[in-house]
Design a protein around this nucleic acid. Structure first.
Lengths: 340, 340
DNA sequence: GGGGGGATTGTGACCGCTCACAAGATCCTG
DNA sequence: CAGGATCTTGTGAGCGGTCACAATCCCCCC
């Protein structure tokens, strides 16, 4: 009653399979792990027993001895946003047949929550962690992560000890700024993202450089929080200022809000004011007017992050990933030469 | 050299802690699991040893004996879309301090990929699975899932054996249709989602019922694929037809494309054509004109799905979740009485 | 002052798998 | 046909926890 009780109350284990196939548990293990040197006939026997029993190897037991969980952790700020969501998707798709990906999204990305999440993942035994974010606080937190888990930041260029993959935000912003300047605008305003975000910062920097490179005056910076609502709010300010003829927005959503504010004040886009976005969300082409913007390939970013992480997992001293991805400028109809 | 070798090459294990604290491994286990009946002083000793060693319990070992992985799987169609992303976010936030959530997003959601993902998760030992989708094929696949893992579908009403939480799509569509009819439109056109999606279907049904309930004629159905691009494309068709004065779109993105197509053909919204969306994405309020739409509380949906799943985990015979969430109609400026 | 009861701690088996090693079977070569 | 190399299979020892049970210890009361 003790030994045979295993009967059919609990899921079958390797020994059950072995018994049914008339081999040892080790042979079953060999079949499962594609070891060479198993007679084809024996393999068939085992396979048959496996499917007859509906046997499924126990991941925990396997992990216990191999020390591999085949799990990755992704920590991200609000995965509802287009950027994070796309990167997450890219990562997940790329990892699909090698790793499980566990996710932790946090509404705030302060030092505490990042560290907590890392700790949580460490407890779960993830083999590596990708942090999707560009908030200064988060990246700082990473620098002194207590653990020895491979870790990659994506979305921004992190400070050296931490590996990171990023798009060249500064270059993207410069691209857009130069384009507007080239159209004949005397200067271009910038509606930036929150100053605590590294990529917002990088974009500001690129904008600034392009401006000074062209000898254009640098208007006061206006910043939002990435949302259309904040774009609208800040847009109302900008719209009142008759001197603004061109605005570079740090993302497409804010551009949407800005355009709305502008048009409410009777200023047409692009006739009176040119607007350029950043990201190239799928909807950008259908805005009124279709938005000229800077495309970021988030999917590619996600894939690169995964590559970098995997590299790190297999070689702790792997070199930092290559150059940042250069963004692509997409011309549509929201920017035009200034009214004379 | 054999036993002491453990020295400092490998992470500390429970025995190391026990040894340092001068107690048995079992006592360490007790402290870790908050068992009563551990002398406070002993607990301190153990705690000190734990932090000195930087000990972290091994999840796999624990899982092996407790048979609990504290992991949930979420299977979703393209998590880049607003709906799925929001539900995922809701689920993750709600699960955060109880479960890890592992994700699998697939670009196609046919029977095969769903079943594969379920199998993959089963191998990992997840305690339950949430499927975010409303595609007929996916839901059908769930019906005959080979495993005995608790499973909940979210986003649509699934066929009975499978538990599901959903918003009342039909009611939402009916709400919007009646509103447009009430404005004085003789009938309402519908730009639906792909017919293979259950919620697209439900919305069509709601629209149809509201129409016939009011004795209005039912125009031909036009359908897109949820994207702004498809909305634009279909919109061009609709725009050419002078008889359309009101269109209900199955989601906000398509509404965006539609509005663009309309305005390109010189038909103003809402003066010439009224447009109503579905979802209420954060940007909807900043469209031109601000979009009147049906709000779905995706976050709430995610939370409910989690509740339902947890209920199922602890009691395989738990009752199916309660009534669908009723959507909320949000009036903005994209709909108006028809031009006389 | 001995006995009972609860609090506290320790012992050993076991979860299901992989690894190292050994043993038996098979086959080729001289 | 012996001898060794190679293929194939089996054996037993952990991996790092938890659980069931037993052993102590302390305190209180009759």
């Amino acid at each position: 009653m003790a030994v045979t009780d295993r009967g059919r109350s609990r899921p079958p284990v390797m020994t059950d399979v072995a018994q049914l196939a008339g081999v040892s548990h080790q042979t079953v293990s060999r079949v499962l792990n594609d070891h060479p040197n198993v007679r084809p006939q024996t393999r068939q026997l085992v396979l048959a027993a496996i499917s007859e029993l509906g046997y499924r190897p126990n991941a925990a037991a396997r992990t216990l001895v191999t020390r591999r969980t085949h799990t990755l952790g992704v920590i991200s700020f609000d995965t509802t946003l287009y950027g994070p969501a796309s990167m997450l998707y890219g990562i997940e798709r790329a990892a699909q047949d090698t790793y499980f990906v566990s996710i932790a999204s946090t509404p705030t990305l302060d030092r505490r929550s990042v560290l907590d999440s890392v700790e949580r993942f460490a407890g779960q035994g993830v083999e590596g962690i990708i942090v999707i974010t560009a908030q200064v606080s988060a990246v700082d937190a990473l620098t002194d992560c207590p653990t020895d888990i491979p870790l990659v930041a994506v979305g921004c260029r992190a400070t050296p000890p931490v590996h990171s993959v990023a798009v060249d935000n500064a270059e993207g912003a410069a691209l857009a700024t130069r384009y507007l300047l080239g159209l004949g605008h005397r200067t271009v305003h910038h509606l930036s993202g929150p100053p605590s975000w590294l990529d917002a910062e990088a974009r500001v920097e690129g904008w600034r450089e392009a401006l000074s490179g062209a000898g254009a005056a640098e208007p006061d910076l206006v910043s939002g929080d990435w949302s259309a609502a904040s774009g609208y709010e800040m847009g109302q300010q900008l719209a009142r200022d008759g001197s603004v003829t061109a605005v570079l927005c740090a993302n497409d959503h804010m551009a949407l809000g800005l355009v709305r504010a502008l048009s409410e004040q009777g200023r047409r886009v692009p006739e009176d004011v040119s607007v350029v976005g950043f990201d190239d969300i799928p909807e950008a082409a259908y805005f009124l007017p279709p938005l000229t913007t800077v495309r970021q390939d988030f999917g590619e970013l996600g894939r690169r992050a995964l590559d970098a992480l995997v590299g790190l997992i297999f070689d702790r001293d792997a070199a930092a990933p290559a150059d940042p991805v250069v963004p692509q400028f997409v011309v549509r109809s929201s920017a035009a030469p200034p009214a004379t």
